Amino acid sequence: MTAITAPAKVRRPRASLQLLRITLILHALLIIVQPIAAGYFLAGNVDAITTHSAIGGSVWMIAFVQIAVAACYTLAGGGRLWPLIASAVLMVAEFVQLTFGYLQNFAVHIPLGTAIVTAVLWMTVWSFRSTARLSRREAKR
Protein backbone atom coordinates (compact mmCIF):
# COMPACT_ATOMS: atom_id res chain seq x y z
CA MET A 1 0.00 0.00 0.00
CA THR A 2 1.32 3.44 -0.95
CA ALA A 3 0.92 6.35 1.43
CA ILE A 4 -0.48 9.50 -0.04
CA THR A 5 1.40 12.56 1.07
CA ALA A 6 0.31 16.12 0.74
CA PRO A 7 2.43 18.21 -1.60
CA ALA A 8 4.94 20.46 0.10
CA LYS A 9 3.57 23.91 0.76
CA VAL A 10 5.22 26.44 -1.49
CA ARG A 11 5.93 29.78 0.12
CA ARG A 12 5.08 32.63 -2.23
CA PRO A 13 5.72 36.31 -1.75
CA ARG A 14 2.49 38.16 -0.97
CA ALA A 15 2.83 41.02 1.51
CA SER A 16 6.46 41.54 0.54
CA LEU A 17 5.46 41.74 -3.13
CA GLN A 18 2.84 44.38 -2.31
CA LEU A 19 5.47 46.41 -0.45
CA LEU A 20 7.86 46.02 -3.36
CA ARG A 21 5.19 47.22 -5.77
CA ILE A 22 4.45 50.31 -3.64
CA THR A 23 8.16 51.12 -3.35
CA LEU A 24 8.69 50.65 -7.08
CA ILE A 25 5.73 52.90 -7.93
CA LEU A 26 7.10 55.65 -5.69
CA HIS A 27 10.56 55.17 -7.18
CA ALA A 28 9.15 55.25 -10.73
CA LEU A 29 7.16 58.42 -10.10
CA LEU A 30 10.22 60.24 -8.79
CA ILE A 31 12.37 58.93 -11.63
CA ILE A 32 9.84 59.99 -14.29
CA VAL A 33 9.78 63.56 -12.94
CA GLN A 34 13.56 63.87 -13.37
CA PRO A 35 13.77 64.13 -17.19
CA ILE A 36 10.65 66.32 -17.19
CA ALA A 37 12.25 68.79 -14.77
CA ALA A 38 15.50 68.69 -16.75
CA GLY A 39 13.53 69.42 -19.93
CA TYR A 40 11.85 72.41 -18.33
CA PHE A 41 15.26 73.68 -17.24
CA LEU A 42 16.66 73.29 -20.75
CA ALA A 43 13.61 75.11 -22.12
CA GLY A 44 14.48 78.14 -20.01
CA ASN A 45 12.69 77.60 -16.69
CA VAL A 46 15.71 77.98 -14.42
CA ASP A 47 13.68 77.14 -11.28
CA ALA A 48 13.13 73.59 -12.58
CA ILE A 49 16.72 72.71 -11.71
CA THR A 50 15.79 73.12 -8.03
CA THR A 51 13.15 70.41 -8.37
CA HIS A 52 15.51 68.21 -10.40
CA SER A 53 18.25 68.62 -7.80
CA ALA A 54 16.00 67.98 -4.81
CA ILE A 55 14.55 64.81 -6.29
CA GLY A 56 17.98 63.66 -7.45
CA GLY A 57 19.32 64.12 -3.94
CA SER A 58 16.62 61.92 -2.45
CA VAL A 59 15.85 59.31 -5.11
CA TRP A 60 18.87 57.15 -4.26
CA MET A 61 17.52 56.94 -0.70
CA ILE A 62 14.29 55.49 -2.10
CA ALA A 63 16.52 52.91 -3.81
CA PHE A 64 18.03 52.13 -0.40
CA VAL A 65 14.53 51.50 0.99
CA GLN A 66 13.85 49.41 -2.12
CA ILE A 67 16.84 47.21 -1.24
CA ALA A 68 15.35 46.49 2.19
CA VAL A 69 11.94 45.73 0.70
CA ALA A 70 13.48 43.55 -2.03
CA ALA A 71 15.40 41.68 0.70
CA CYS A 72 12.07 40.97 2.43
CA TYR A 73 10.62 39.83 -0.90
CA THR A 74 13.57 37.52 -1.53
CA LEU A 75 14.33 36.20 1.94
CA ALA A 76 11.07 36.30 3.89
CA GLY A 77 8.70 35.97 0.94
CA GLY A 78 10.65 33.32 -0.92
CA GLY A 79 10.74 35.45 -4.06
CA ARG A 80 13.48 35.61 -6.66
CA LEU A 81 16.95 36.93 -5.95
CA TRP A 82 17.41 39.21 -8.97
CA PRO A 83 15.16 42.07 -7.70
CA LEU A 84 17.42 42.41 -4.67
CA ILE A 85 20.54 42.49 -6.84
CA ALA A 86 18.95 44.91 -9.32
CA SER A 87 17.87 47.20 -6.47
CA ALA A 88 21.41 47.29 -5.10
CA VAL A 89 22.82 48.07 -8.55
CA LEU A 90 20.19 50.81 -8.98
CA MET A 91 21.14 52.44 -5.69
CA VAL A 92 24.81 52.56 -6.69
CA ALA A 93 23.89 53.83 -10.17
CA GLU A 94 21.69 56.55 -8.71
CA PHE A 95 24.42 57.68 -6.32
CA VAL A 96 26.86 57.81 -9.25
CA GLN A 97 24.19 59.68 -11.23
CA LEU A 98 23.85 62.22 -8.43
CA THR A 99 27.62 62.71 -8.32
CA PHE A 100 27.97 63.24 -12.07
CA GLY A 101 24.97 65.58 -12.04
CA TYR A 102 26.58 67.83 -9.45
CA LEU A 103 29.86 67.67 -11.39
CA GLN A 104 27.87 68.66 -14.51
CA ASN A 105 29.37 65.77 -16.46
CA PHE A 106 26.44 65.35 -18.84
CA ALA A 107 28.25 62.83 -21.04
CA VAL A 108 27.72 60.33 -18.21
CA HIS A 109 24.72 61.91 -16.48
CA ILE A 110 22.27 61.75 -19.41
CA PRO A 111 22.90 58.16 -20.64
CA LEU A 112 23.06 56.84 -17.07
CA GLY A 113 19.80 58.63 -16.30
CA THR A 114 18.19 57.01 -19.32
CA ALA A 115 19.36 53.58 -18.15
CA ILE A 116 18.04 54.22 -14.62
CA VAL A 117 14.62 55.33 -15.88
CA THR A 118 14.41 52.24 -18.09
CA ALA A 119 15.45 49.87 -15.29
CA VAL A 120 13.05 51.29 -12.70
CA LEU A 121 10.11 51.29 -15.11
CA TRP A 122 10.94 47.76 -16.25
CA MET A 123 11.09 46.52 -12.64
CA THR A 124 7.80 48.27 -11.83
CA VAL A 125 6.02 46.66 -14.77
CA TRP A 126 7.54 43.26 -13.90
CA SER A 127 6.27 43.52 -10.31
CA PHE A 128 2.68 43.48 -11.61
CA ARG A 129 3.17 40.46 -13.86
CA SER A 130 2.12 37.02 -12.68
CA THR A 131 5.72 35.80 -12.66
CA ALA A 132 6.49 38.15 -9.75
CA ARG A 133 4.23 36.02 -7.55
CA LEU A 134 6.21 32.86 -8.19
CA SER A 135 8.51 31.45 -5.55
CA ARG A 136 12.15 30.74 -6.34
CA ARG A 137 11.35 27.03 -6.74
CA GLU A 138 8.47 27.68 -9.12
CA ALA A 139 10.52 30.13 -11.17
CA LYS A 140 13.22 27.50 -11.76
CA ARG A 141 10.79 25.11 -13.45
Rank of each mutant, 00 (worst) to 15 (best):
G113Q: 01
A68K: 02
A93S: 15
A86K: 13
T114W: 08
I49S: 14
P83M: 06
V65P: 05
V117Y: 08
A88V: 13
Q97H: 14
A88W: 10
K140L: 11
A38R: 01
A88D: 03
L103S: 09
G78M: 15
V69K: 07
S53V: 13
T124C: 14
R141K: 10
L42I: 01
S135H: 09
Y40V: 01
G39P: 01
L75N: 09
G101V: 07
T74I: 00
A48R: 02
G79V: 13
V69P: 14
W82N: 05
G78Q: 13
R129F: 05
F95T: 10
R80N: 12
T74L: 05
V96Q: 05
T74Y: 11
L84G: 06
A86Y: 10
Y73K: 04
V125K: 12
T131N: 04
I110Q: 02
T74G: 00
V92Y: 05
E138D: 08
L81S: 04
M123N: 15
V120Q: 03
I67Y: 05
F100A: 04
P35Q: 01
T51L: 15
A88K: 03
T74E: 06
P35Y: 02
V117G: 08
Y40E: 00
A86I: 15
A115D: 04
V125D: 09
T74V: 04
A139P: 02
T99S: 11
N105K: 05
T131V: 08
A107F: 03
A132H: 13
I110E: 03
P35I: 02
T99K: 15
Y73R: 09
L112V: 10
N105L: 09
L75M: 12
I116P: 11
G44R: 01
F106M: 07
T124Q: 10
L90F: 06
G57H: 13
L103A: 11
T114D: 02
G77A: 05
Y102G: 14
R133K: 15
Q104G: 00
S127F: 10
V89M: 11
G44A: 03
L84E: 11
T131M: 03
S53W: 06
R141C: 00
M61K: 03
V46Y: 10
L81F: 11
S130P: 03
L121Y: 08
F41Y: 02
I36C: 06
F41Q: 00
S53P: 07
S53T: 15
L75E: 00
G57A: 07
H109S: 01
V125M: 09
V125H: 10
W122S: 14
W82A: 07
H52Q: 02
T114C: 05
V96S: 02
T118I: 10
T50M: 09
L98I: 01
N105P: 00
V120Y: 04
W126G: 00
N105D: 09
A76E: 04
V92K: 07
A86E: 12
F64D: 03
A132T: 09
T124I: 08
D47W: 03
A93F: 15
T114P: 00
I55G: 11
V59D: 11
V120S: 01
A76R: 07
A71E: 06
A48C: 10
S58Q: 15
T118V: 15
G77L: 07
Q104P: 00
A37I: 07
H52Y: 03
G101K: 03
V65Y: 10
V125A: 15
S87Y: 08
G57M: 14
W122D: 03
A86S: 14
A63M: 08
L103M: 12
A37F: 06
V65N: 05
Y40L: 01
S130D: 14
A93W: 13
I49Q: 09
W122A: 15
